[in-house]
Design a protein around this nucleic acid. Structure first.
Lengths: 219, 219
DNA sequence: GATAGTTTCATACAACTGTTTGAATTGCAA
DNA sequence: TTGCAATTCAAACAGTTGTATGAAACTATC
């Protein structure tokens, strides 16, 4: 396998360019120019452009998922197989938000890349995201154990809304800053996380009757 | 302006193809073939491909926004200038969700197009969405009037989370169906709307102290 | 029915895309 | 050093894309 030099130079350059300019207007020629390697090297080392993008995204999302499961497992072990719902939700959205938000000037290439991936959603990335379901099922399971009196439907909706708030906040962070004229501080990641967690927790723990009543009233 | 025949044939064909196959793999040649018109007609009538896409999206989002404001205005007039927060949120997310969800087999081309636009987010559409801020400010204003004791920051976060839940549910409706093994019924649009509204309402009305405490505890 | 303005058409353009090829070079093992 | 595989390279390939052109067809007005 020799030195890996070319391979990793491509990965680094590609991640940086995609992060800065988005997937749609970065070509292989841009990437190899930035990496200082030959055009054919991409197909030689990765097979195709899509496989290069997939490798970039898989690497980063494996890291996030591992961190999620680490937090979840730690919490469940400490609670004897059952963790509080807030902690489960924290494990679900914390790593994602920490990986993408934070002070802009010190945001890593990886973070900016993941934001792009979240916004643009090109085919190879979409394919990978579709395989994420098994991973989410683990969280659904933990949530069910934490709230055994809750129906499956409510659990899934709670999970869906927690992810919704996290991902949308990442995708639209610029717009939220502009809309709120800077009043919403997206650099304070821990505050964002706790906001998402607390709303998702309320969604999942609000008395069944009263939640149902609120829904009916809203109709 | 003659008969408009060609122009509207292009619009119809384009919306249908984009809805079915997404923006990234539909070309102008596909569109003109479907419309039964000449290739040059697109540039003649719309100027460019991007302007065609923009016109499609603007038409649909104007309709949604008008519906939103209609509901909002009706509610505020009935309440003497101040509407209940649930009703405001209902006006905010109702039209969007109604426009995109519902029984798949009877989903309109327009609905499928808007789902695509929500998933793929191509440049001309992104540009238009960025101009939506003024529209959202009207809702922020109404929410502030409904909850005068609430801080601006909390209002904006609530608005952000409401949109998050609505848009994410649209974007990821397939995944939610698969994850929940069909238990979450996305065809019952009014139920989805009331779920989103009730969670967003809780997020905005939970006692300040207790919400803050929950956030701190979650850290 | 001639004329002016609009619309349609076939066709070409020019540029860019990811991928392939086959030869040159390199690095390592025998 | 020789031989062999892995890697790099310049170049070309094959296809697609959105757009422009200029002539032809149409339409309505006088």
């Amino acid at each position: 396998m020799a030195s890996d030099h070319t391979r990793s130079a491509i990965l680094t350059a590609a991640e940086r360019l995609y992060a800065d300019r988005g997937f749609s207007d970065v070509t292989l020629r841009d990437i190899v120019a930035e990496a200082g390697v030959n055009l054919a090297a991409v197909n030689y080392h990765f097979g195709s452009k899509d496989e290069l993008i997939a490798e970039l995204f898989v690497t980063r999302s494996i890291a996030t998922n591992r961190e999620r499961l680490r937090e979840l497992k730690a919490a469940e072990e400490q609670g004897g197989g059952r963790a509080p719902i807030e902690v489960i939700l924290h494990a679900l959205v914390g790593p994602t938000l920490r990986g993408c938000l934070g002070p802009e000037n010190q945001r890593s290439t990886a973070a900016r890349f993941m934001i792009r991936a979240s916004i643009e959603s090109v085919p190879p990335i979409r394919r990978i995201k579709n395989r994420e379901i098994d991973h989410l099922r683990k969280f659904a399971g933990a949530m069910r154990r934490a709230l055994p009196e809750r129906s499956d439907v409510d659990i899934y909706w709670g999970l869906n809304f927690a992810l919704a708030m996290a991902h949308h906040t990442i995708r639209e962070s610029e717009r939220l800053t502009k809309l709120s004229e800077g009043k919403c501080d997206l650099d304070d990641v821990e505050d964002v996380i706790s906001r998402v967690v607390s709303v998702a927790t309320m969604a999942l723990t609000a008395g069944k009757a009263e939640a149902k009543a609120a829904r009916v009233a809203a109709r």
